[in-house]
């Protein structure tokens, strides 16, 4: 479904990604792990079109998406949930969801999609008329994911849902992602929380200094010596 080949990218004079190879198949739940500054977020931003790839190819369902503007990428069915959420602070939860469904023209479809995400996040349903700017960190993350789901994307890119959250909301966010994956959404997740993530996902890539250094299934990586030493402290 998504295929990155030899992707190099970065900001102005600072190149961050060096020859990144990555693949996500339909229905898979894949994670990108790695330390701070490894280029995990840049990878997602490059796929979503906010950072332009300098080299290499990014293919989505067989078509190149390099150089497309972010809203064009979004319209192809790639949802992106950023680490800072980028919610519309002055709008209610419900309105945030409606803007999320901007590309959906069918009003019935929008309503059923709203019901669906409220079912997934009952907390949001309780507060549907509250302004997004007044939500707690965990609720914001939920709303960001919910908004990303509104156009029913075929691939969802999620950047560090655990960032800045207490353990319980973090678990709730992971739980929601797990449910989504079980319902058939393809997810590419970026995380620093290695242990929890590896128990959750089908496959993972480990990114260090802008290069993929390891890849494998969850259990494979959990039993890998380097991973244990560097990330799990065993």
């Amino acid at each position: 479904m998504l295929k990155l080949k030899g992707v190099e990218s970065g900001y102005d004079l600072l190149q961050v990604l060096w020859d990144v190879e990555l693949e996500v198949d339909e229905g898979e739940f894949v994670a990108i792990l790695g330390p701070n500054g490894a280029g995990k977020t840049t990878t997602l931003r490059t796929i979503a079109g906010y950072v332009r790839a300098l080299k290499g190819s990014i293919e989505f369902n067989g078509k190149s998406i390099v150089g497309l503007e972010p809203h064009r990428v979004s319209r192809l069915g790639i949802g992106y949930v950023s680490e800072s959420s980028n919610l519309f602070a002055g709008m209610s939860i419900h309105e945030n969801l409606l803007v999320g469904a901007y590309t959906v023209k069918n009003k019935q479809l929008i309503a059923s999609q709203v019901d669906l995400v409220f079912e997934l996040f009952p907390r949001l349903h309780e507060r549907r008329n509250q302004l997004a700017g007044t939500l707690s960190g965990g609720e914001r993350k939920m709303l960001a994911i919910a908004r990303g789901l509104m156009p029913s994307p075929s691939l969802l890119l999620v950047d560090e849902p655990s960032l800045g959250l207490a353990p319980i909301p973090t678990l709730a966010a992971f739980e929601a992602l797990k449910q989504l994956s079980q319902r058939g959404t393809t997810i590419l997740l970026v995380e620093q929380n290695v242990n929890t993530t590896l128990h959750l996902v089908d496959r993972a890539y480990v990114l260090e200094q802008g290069k993929v250094v390891l890849e494998g299934t969850g259990p494979q990586l959990l039993s890998n010596k380097d991973v244990q030493e560097a990330y799990l402290g065993i």
Binding site: A48, Y50, H71, S74, N86, A89, V99, G100, M150, P151
Partner: peptide
Amino acid sequence: MDETGAQMAG
């Protein structure tokens, strides 16, 4: 309110 968020929504 948020240009990046708007682009995410297409």
